[in-house]
Simulated assay, not measured.
Amino acid sequence: MTIHKEGRNSIALVIIVNAILIALSFTIFKENDTVGAILVGIGAILLIMILQFFRNPKVNPRVNENYVLAPADGKVVVIEDTEEQEYFQDKRKQISIFMSPVNVHVNRSPISGSVKYFKYHPGKYLVAWHPKSSTDNERTTVVAEMQNGLEILWRQIAGAMARRIKCYVDEGDRLIQGNEFGFIKFGSRVDVFLPLDADVKVNIGDKTKAGITVIAELQ
């Protein structure tokens, strides 16, 4: 288990806050043990919360060219046939995974392939389960082409709390199934758009592990 690089600034800030709270407990509130203990306790809780949020556990991906792996830890909230308007402009099978603040927020490539399309969209910060969040919120769109020519699209979507999306890929990059491609801070969702004949292997409400859970099998 390591701490993700995206957490460095946040952890440094929490450490500074902890130092201030400890200093207060030994100066202004030195004669009030209860208040001092509360301040130190608050600092400790903040540090534990921020460390667990930016944890980056080691993953052994279930590499298989026929599998589409979960791009995020979280819960399956959408499985439906829908019109994908940005790139394919036709009907696709959509699987959406919601990440709560307690989930690991490292995003992993669901397939291996070459990045054919990448775009960052500035936008709103509606709650991640809002019907319009996938089209109106801040988001990134990635399309990767597999060796057999099949293209898969996935989209990182910001939520009400998630105000920073990081995507480490660009057009022309080569992705390896299960490897990290991005990170979303403080809870959001990832949508995956598949061919209509993809065999979905998850159900609404299922918990997923990035790079491990098979969400669909390609025909």
Rank of each mutant, 00 (worst) to 15 (best):
V169I: 15
R62Q: 12
S25D: 02
Y120E: 06
I184G: 07
K116H: 09
F29Q: 04
G123F: 09
I22N: 08
N18S: 08
G43D: 01
L126S: 05
L194R: 02
Q89G: 08
I79W: 03
P110H: 03
Y168Q: 11
Q156C: 04
R189I: 03
V214D: 13
G187Q: 09
V200E: 02
P71C: 05
I15M: 04
Q89T: 15
A144H: 05
N66V: 01
E151T: 15
V77M: 13
V142Q: 02
A128K: 06
R189A: 11
I157T: 07
Y125Q: 13
P101T: 02
V63C: 10
A144V: 10
I212F: 08
H130C: 04
V76P: 12
L153K: 15
I38G: 04
V63K: 15
V63Y: 14
W129N: 13
A72R: 02
E65C: 10
P57Y: 08
G211N: 05
D170G: 12
P131K: 13
W129P: 01
D90S: 15
F98S: 06
K201G: 01
S100I: 01
Y120C: 00
S109I: 04
L196W: 12
D173S: 14
K209I: 15
V63S: 12
Y120G: 01
S10M: 10
T82E: 02
D173A: 15
R108I: 08
R92K: 14
R62F: 13
K116M: 09
S188G: 15
